[in-house]
Design a protein around this nucleic acid. Sequence first.
DNA 1: TGCGACTCCTTACGCCGTAAAGTAACCTTG
DNA 2: CAAGGTTACTTTACGGCGTAAGGAGTCGCA
Lengths: 257, 257
Amino acid sequence: MVVYAGQGDPRRSIELLWRASAAEKRPGPKPGLSVDAIVDAAIEVADEQGMAFSMRAVGERLGRTAMALYTYVPGKNELVDLMYDRAMAEVPTSYDLGEGWRPAVTRWAHDMWECYRRHPWVLQVSQARPVLGPHEFAVTEALAAILVSTGLPGRRLRGIVGAINYFVRGAAQTVAEARAAGGATGQADEEWWYARSAVLIEVEPDLEKKFPMLHVLEQDREPVDPELPYLENDAVENFRGGLKVLLDGVEGAVAKP
Amino acid sequence: MVVYAGQGDPRRSIELLWRASAAEKRPGPKPGLSVDAIVDAAIEVADEQGMAFSMRAVGERLGRTAMALYTYVPGKNELVDLMYDRAMAEVPTSYDLGEGWRPAVTRWAHDMWECYRRHPWVLQVSQARPVLGPHEFAVTEALAAILVSTGLPGRRLRGIVGAINYFVRGAAQTVAEARAAGGATGQADEEWWYARSAVLIEVEPDLEKKFPMLHVLEQDREPVDPELPYLENDAVENFRGGLKVLLDGVEGAVAKP
DNA sequence: TGCGACTCCTTACGCCGTAAAGTAACCTTG
DNA sequence: CAAGGTTACTTTACGGCGTAAGGAGTCGCA
């Protein structure tokens, strides 16, 4: 429910993200934990329980109390930023341009999509205020490097980068939340959908007449992967179709700049 | 932090959304509140405080306790669904196709964008499991009605509808969170950005060499509206540029189906 | 050997959503 | 008109959360 955006001390946050720690000899007991260990544990917990993971849960996974984490990390906001940047580290940062920009962008989009699916909580980290970690930079740099090869000016590229980013995020969000919701309640997508739509038809029998165009949208469905649940199937189909249209638009911009 | 998605009794949720209440004569004291009044108050609170509004705050605004709300609404999840659908009611549902589909889609996108900016918390309501309220249907119906006029088959349209939706949401989210974050900490966007980037340059002086393509993206900036804060300005520019590319793609699909 | 820095713990505070139970208002029935 | 059941709303309480404050034990260095 809370929008997560780093709000604490900027210096502390940035130094943590870039691991700019002066590793001097220091007195006191040897640290039993490390920022990396905490971030790893937190990601594990978040992968299982979603963004509503708690500091207590992370501490418990490490055999410590919640308060022990505050020795390494200023607070939950900053921890989330660190988790975000670590997740971005999983995405490749170099793409072969041998076959042109389009296959490269497509691969980038798929890699991002996969990362979002492995770590759905990433989609709930604020985008407006970039986390400004090294791997977030690297990921955007990778997309920028591909698109700069089109020769388009920066002015055009910014909109395109934004559009591709928004699209991949949005498409991934649809699946991620379908899974998260299903997992939280133990209800499969189909069950959820069925229960709702059954009541809906009962309450509003004229649904198709009131919204005829939505019905047109439903025509012509073909299964993408029969293994996947209903909503997920939908999202994969939309992802492919939408990305194609989006890249067609980019192609148009490249052709006539 | 919690992903909001209606999880309670499907019947109760749907009936509330469609206001399918049997208004019979009933014993007991007269209701001092109503679902509508509660939704209105909750939207006011959420517009000010973001999605982290509390039931207690909503109750207080109505001169009641938090628990009083539970007479009208099963829980916070369901209240959020109702708020979402009420917000969607602000978006126009009919667009003139006299000049073709493209200006109409552009207007739809701008109207959605405006709605998201009035009610940033809407962007945090789960999209995977649609709320299934009447106004959410109407909004999607409006976009579908415009796009069906292109003559494209449902298969193609689904991806396009998704892409447009994701794009508008994503672009709006960028601004919304910039504002929310600024409001929460009392920091203006510029201040936040300045504090961070100053430390960043200090910690990583070779930033431009490490990520040269990002630098290309920054070239060629022109002010859109000098009244708007920095990040918001950015987002508006990206919105316009991205939407253009996206619709170019749709145009390509229409030309050669 | 002792001091100060350090890790980690316990406790506690003020939030949150909401379950449970009580009180007062009102309509229906006798 | 009185009794009883239904409803609106309150108070209280529970278990969660993030994290502030302070204390206990551990280590490097003087």
